[in-house]
Design a protein around this nucleic acid. Sequence first.
DNA 1: CGTCCCGTTGACGGCGCTCAAAACAGGTGG
DNA 2: CCACCTGTTTTGAGCGCCGTCAACGGGACG
Lengths: 240, 240
Amino acid sequence: MLNCRCQHGQCVLCGALVTSGDHGKAQVCEIRGVLNRRRYAAGEVVFREGTPCTQLLVLRTGQLKLTTMPLTGREQILGLLVAGQLVGFETSDATYPYTATALTPVEACCITHKEMLRVLEENPAVALSVIQRFRDELVQAQIMIRNLGIKPAHARVASFILSLIPAGANHEETFPLVLSRLEIAELLGLSEETVSRVFAEMRRNSLIDAPHGEIRLLDMPRIRRIAGIGNGESWHGDLL
Amino acid sequence: MLNCRCQHGQCVLCGALVTSGDHGKAQVCEIRGVLNRRRYAAGEVVFREGTPCTQLLVLRTGQLKLTTMPLTGREQILGLLVAGQLVGFETSDATYPYTATALTPVEACCITHKEMLRVLEENPAVALSVIQRFRDELVQAQIMIRNLGIKPAHARVASFILSLIPAGANHEETFPLVLSRLEIAELLGLSEETVSRVFAEMRRNSLIDAPHGEIRLLDMPRIRRIAGIGNGESWHGDLL
DNA sequence: CGTCCCGTTGACGGCGCTCAAAACAGGTGG
DNA sequence: CCACCTGTTTTGAGCGCCGTCAACGGGACG
């Protein structure tokens, strides 16, 4: 485990392999032959929409954004990925359906689809773990559908801000914000200007503080209320 | 296989089990003990958002819609399911994150999560098949995000109409339309009236014909063009 | 100091939502 | 068969949210 070349117990593949009792050590040794570690700089494109997909990645550190650009138009962010998640595991089509770009410096493990399928067939524990990851991604996607489908601009931004809080973190703390206004707009299905306006409004009403590249929640309960549906009665009533 | 009580080779569970060589017959016999067949009438609620989830279903026939209603507001349809897909396989939370409702008469196979996990651990082929289903659902969800995020009303409706065409079907044919205008609106993040207006406009321009409960495509190429991004220059130019 | 990029702010117009009523279909009972 | 009622679909009028266009400010960097 410690002498495994990819050196990370938290990786879905390694982690699961290590704990899958019946094969054990032999499997660990086998898999490290097919895993490659890769690094990407912030802003670097990992793979591009429409290119043939042969490999999949397991994110170790950093964040990725998945984007799509239908025909000639603005980009839409389909989702954000953090450590532990899979990306590029496409089986139905032979090309990636979205572009993956590093938002921060990224470390990831690479494996070809062919090898991955073999690993899954031989290691039920890994398969279970992969199923769990897909479930999580699907839940995230459904949350996005909810937001895009019914929430007005202010509620979308509020929901987005709440989603930045790391699990089990103290509020009233300052969190890093790696997305630009434009990227937030692309994530929320809004225009850059609208996002900026909502941020300004929230700052004016001391709901948040937003220095460069960071954000700080000043009034969690009200943000949470705004994030719920825009309930008819103008949100201004709540903000002022 | 033919004497299996659930009697369907096309079910992910049975199908996969039958073809998983190394266990074979024994597994088939084992699984039919934990599978239950259920029927639901059109309009019947299969399970409701927020209720504890212990079972998952494999759709045999019919269609389901998955809906959510955040706080007090309108419903949002998260997705539609057809035969072969899984529903209710939630592992992270103990409650269903959406409501499942039958759109047509439905037949499904039921299995508890606990049993399902055991089946997955013992049958890699089933696990692979399940992963594939989740991938497909994720792709569908991402298509919805794309549509909701950037497309104007007309393009959303056009995309929806195109999505009704069964795989490998002849166009110029008449397809069943099980969703009401309100449901289409909830799926596309629009109002009922807007959907109705777009349908009317399309009918006026002989793009479609829409008798009760059915729809017929009259001009596939133009519908396809409208479904692409609304590219700035008014769509009226295309329609007239 | 000039340039570039990002964020902010203002003015304006249009898409699509809201409210309301009419047209329509389907089912039920007289 | 027709009157009646209920729920769906259609159509109209009005307006508000938000997207577009444009100009400005500020920090990073050469």
